[in-house]
């Protein structure tokens, strides 16, 4: 169990590293895709219980600490995104390529909505075309990243039962 948690936190730190170092490359107008959204989707599909919720919260907190400025908005948006994935997962076949793409789009929009709703009490954020660009780049990359993490991740009994 601790090994599993350790591996998941390595994925999270890798996501933070990629977000800050490489993520300017595959982007439109130099807006980076949001790797937290991809990690949250992966966790929410893999662990649909309280364990997944807590992991999403802590991953959001790590991304908040990495941004250095505001601690809390990413954590809150990760929690809401988990609930959205759980809900949408019951309505759509989200494990297909298109399903993951649509899920990436919905979750990215939700995350930005929650993020800006939280900070708007203190500052006036500049909301515009950049938000849509981030949503589009995130949704396009989500199927690839989620499938890559699933491919390298160890299968849980839940996955084996699903496959059977």
């Amino acid at each position: 169990m601790f090994k599993k948690i350790f591996i998941l936190f390595v994925y999270c730190l890798l996501g933070v590293f990629i977000q800050s170092s490489f993520a300017s490359f595959p982007t439109l107008a130099l807006i980076k895709p949001d790797f937290l959204v991809m990690l949250v989707i992966f966790l929410s599909l893999k662990y649909r219980d309280i364990y997944g919720l807590l992991l999403c919260f802590f991953f959001g907190l790590i991304f908040d600490f990495a941004s250095v400025l505001y601690v809390g908005p990413n954590a809150a948006s990760a929690v809401i995104s988990f609930l959205v994935v759980n809900y949408v997962g019951q309505k759509l076949f989200v494990e297909s390529f298109m399903g993951l793409l649509i899920l990436g789009f919905i979750v990215s929009l939700t995350k930005q909505l929650v993020y800006f709703s939280l900070i708007i009490s203190w500052i006036q954020p500049n909301i515009g075309i950049a938000n849509l660009t981030e949503t589009l780049t995130t949704s396009v990359l989500t199927p690839f990243v989620v499938r890559a993490i699933s491919f390298f991740g160890k299968k849980t009994p839940q996955d084996k039962r699903r496959k059977d």
Binding site: F65, L69, Y70, V71, G72, P73, A75, V79, I80, W122
Partner: peptide
Amino acid sequence: AIFLLIISFCLTAKSFEKGSYLPSLG
């Protein structure tokens, strides 16, 4: 989820305080 959202809101409010230790902690 509600409990975690309340914690997140409190942390956000704390971050915006002048001289908050949270950025350095991060």
